[in-house]
Design a protein around this nucleic acid. Sequence first.
DNA 1: AGAAAACATCAAGAAAACGTTAAGAATGCG
DNA 2: CGCATTCTTAACGTTTTCTTGATGTTTTCT
Lengths: 235, 235
Amino acid sequence: MTLKHEILLIEDEKNICNFIATTLRTQDYKVCFASDAANGLSLAASGCPDLILLDLGLPDMDGIDVIRSLREWSNIPIIVISARTQEKEKVEALDAGADDYITKPFGTSELMARIRTALRRSSMNNAPVAGQNRYAAKNLIIDYEKHVITVDGSIVHFTQIEYKILTFLARNSGKVITYDTLITHVWGPYADSNNRILRVNMANIRRKLEHNPADPQYIFTEIGIGYRMIDNENG
Amino acid sequence: MTLKHEILLIEDEKNICNFIATTLRTQDYKVCFASDAANGLSLAASGCPDLILLDLGLPDMDGIDVIRSLREWSNIPIIVISARTQEKEKVEALDAGADDYITKPFGTSELMARIRTALRRSSMNNAPVAGQNRYAAKNLIIDYEKHVITVDGSIVHFTQIEYKILTFLARNSGKVITYDTLITHVWGPYADSNNRILRVNMANIRRKLEHNPADPQYIFTEIGIGYRMIDNENG
DNA sequence: AGAAAACATCAAGAAAACGTTAAGAATGCG
DNA sequence: CGCATTCTTAACGTTTTCTTGATGTTTTCT
């Protein structure tokens, strides 16, 4: 199915926690936990989940403040789960930045549907959150969001492996990337560390990219070490 | 002091309609009405509201179909208001593309908070996608509102599934859309992620669309990733 | 300069991904 | 119920991509 979304569950009641986690896992989500606000906040920051399920009744901190705290730096969708049915609570949570509010007891399938809805919406944003979503240098443009590469004004097609190599170098432009690092990134940790496969791919990449592959303008070879791509001009 | 948001209310019961409209106006929203689905859909297209409040129990059309119909060409936030409390209804509406679901009777302040939440989220999108209701490139024209596709000057018929695939690609023209994304959009979140069904449909689409399907001019295959449609010429 | 190491390029077979056709199943309609 | 359209599945041929081996070129080192 679609690539696994990671969901952070902040909830102190063990039973509910286990129940929700199990349900989520059967739906092919990756789940991580926190049983109090402090851990929740730090996990949200370090783990970069795709969605947060937040119980308002945490022991160490007011739920509304948890939301505010998250919203100071992040747009990750937050769905509040709460036993409090009072309207005032809902309004406060939503205005603090929550995306949805479900009251216990709730149906599993409704929760799942609301999670899908929140994820769908957030994926539409394709928000330029952390990383740069565009690389440009000389006559080369890489649009990570569109997944399209332009050379001298026209779209050029790269195979999957070529695309991975190129974008990895572009994301780390200016730095020398070792053969091992590149191979591990593209073929995984168990791949043959011999770099001949990289050389073939690099030749193909350069044929599409460079006017004269023997005198490259975009990707340079650092003999014995790896490859280095010229700096991004997009700050 | 924010600029007035326009809200389209599609609801057949006069009392509720008046009540909500009055409440919205006191909160400084601009409100427009429709008492059935047909009027609602055409007002949504012509008026370009910022948010839609939709009652599922309309006389002339199934509510879920109204959502689907809207989602064919628009990302305007939709909040469903319904008397039906059954979970199945909620899941269907949310999976069809609704952004939220409130059951009657509901508190006014909760409704207002959910509206604020939906508007806040949609404004984050910088909304480049929402407006356009027409796609044109080379000799292809897609009129989302009329639901009509023209190739080389004559109207060509596409089946429902073909239409969905085509319009989704068109609305995201220029981007590579992954097989998974397309499948989820057309067949829902539970569909088989194998792309063979997409391949068959794409062959059929291309037969109707391209002069030479083996050398496509409108929809390009990005092997291993997905499909990409040529940019919209309508800005 | 000469040898060795490292890299670039070319070509060919194997594997994977895609396009296309056709047939049965499901759906909708008179 | 029977017909027509649409949807899905299976099968097969074609194209593209991936990997490996062979060969040529550049760089490095002695």
